[in-house]
Simulated scan of single mutants.
Amino acid sequence: MEYKRTLEEAPEALQRFLAPFMEQLTTKNLGNTVELMTEDERAELERLLGLMIEPPRSFAPYSF
């Protein structure tokens, strides 16, 4: 359930994460935003983007 909720909330979480960076830019695009980020912030961006891009994982009944 937690995994599904995280996937559903990913687009909103990405918007909240990017908002402070976008406010600092005159030309607002993702490439310019990445230049302002620290290494840890880039890792968080990759995690959020991965949640939005990866299809949900199906779990086999005997996988546990």
Rank of each mutant, 00 (worst) to 15 (best):
M1S: 09
E2F: 08
E2V: 07
Y3M: 08
Y3H: 11
T6D: 11
L7M: 14
E8Y: 08
A10N: 00
A10H: 06
E12I: 05
E12N: 09
E12C: 07
E12H: 05
E12M: 04
Q15G: 03
Q15N: 08
R16N: 10
F17L: 09
L18F: 05
L18R: 06
F21M: 09
E23K: 15
E23A: 12
T26D: 15
T27Y: 10
N29V: 11
L30I: 15
L30C: 06
L30V: 03
G31R: 13
T33M: 15
V34D: 04
V34F: 08
V34E: 02
E35G: 01
E35V: 06
M37Y: 04
M37I: 02
M37G: 02
E39A: 05
E39F: 04
E39Y: 07
E39W: 03
E39R: 10
D40G: 01
E41D: 03
A43T: 07
A43M: 05
E44P: 01
E44Q: 09
E44K: 08
E46D: 06
E46M: 06
R47D: 14
G50K: 06
L51S: 01
M52P: 05
M52A: 08
M52R: 03
M52F: 00
M52V: 03
I53S: 00
P55V: 11
P55I: 02
P55R: 12
P55N: 12
P56A: 15
R57P: 00
R57L: 10
S58A: 11
S58G: 04
F59N: 01
A60L: 02
A60C: 01
P61A: 03
P61E: 10
S63I: 04
F64R: 12
